[in-house]
Each structure stands twice: as C-alpha cells, then as structure tokens.
C-alpha cells in the first residue's frame, strides 16, 4: 500500500468521499477512481459498468470494481445520464491500476446540473479527509 504522501492526486480534479474523481470533458463529466482507491483494491480483474443511457443521481451506485477477493462499488459523482463507457476496460481492467486518471477512466456522464461538481472536494480537502 502507498503512503499518503506518495499518492498521485492531480490538482485539476474533483474528488468524492468514496474515492472517485471527476472532471469536465467535452461538456460531459468523465469519472474514474483515484490513486488511493486503486491502490487499496489491488489488482483489478473486472470492471462492471453501467449501460449507456442509464441515469443516476449523485451518490447512486453506478458499477463495481473487482479484485480477486473483493468487490467495491463506485458511485455517481454527480447526477446525469451515462453517455460513454470505457470499453477498453472490458478486456484490460488493469488499466484502472496502471493509469487511473487517463486510460483507466470509467464512464462519462452528461450532467443534469454541472454545479453539483461543487459538492465534491478539491485536492486539498480530499487529502485532508484521507489524513482523517
């Protein structure tokens, strides 16, 4: 497991208490899980994803990540409709471990209300939360 100071937490992202990140991407919100979550889960073997067109409210369970001996759900960082999923994860779930902010993104959501992004934490607030 990584020490807290070794975590990679980019400044430009917003973070949720459930360890998802979110950012604006072409008018949509792209999300994934952050370095802390992928490190805790260990080697991810399967990503259960929603279907394009599914709608969620902020905080709803969207899908799950599986390691060999654990399952961890991930939640919608804000309300909206799924417009895109990262299909590469189907064959290469390890991308979430290798590149959780880039190639390992999970879904893109068309937000109902983009201001919900403000409910999430910035890097500093999130880091403070992790420190407890």
């Amino acid at each position: 497991m990584k020490e807290l100071q070794d975590l990679n937490l980019p400044e430009e992202l917003k973070y949720s208490k459930d360890h998802e990140w979110a950012k604006k991407e072409n008018g949509n919100i792209r999300m994934g899980i952050d370095d802390y979550a992928q490190d805790q889960l260990g080697e991810i073997v399967f990503v259960e994803m929603p279907e394009v067109g599914d709608t969620f409210s902020q905080g709803d369970e969207v899908g799950s990540l599986e390691s060999v001996k654990a399952v961890s759900e991930f939640y919608a960082p804000l309300s909206g409709e799924v417009v895109k999923i990262n299909e590469e994860l189907e064959d290469s779930p390890e991308l979430v471990n290798q590149s959780c902010y880039d190639n390992g993104w999970i879904v893109e959501i068309k937000p109902d209300d983009v201001s919900e992004l403000e409910n999430l934490m910035d890097k500093k607030a999130y880091y403070d939360m992790l420190k407890g």
């Binding site: 399967f46 599986e66 390691s67 060999v68 001996k69 654990a70 399952v71």
Partner: peptide, 12 residues
C-alpha cells in the same frame, strides 16, 4: 471469479 459468491459479495 469468486467475487460472484456469497463469501465475498454476501447479500449481493
């Protein structure tokens, strides 16, 4: 694929 099973996923 044990994550389908009760000892890991319990009520789910």
């Amino acid at each position: 694929l044990a994550t389908r099973e009760q000892h890991i996923r319990r009520e789910k």
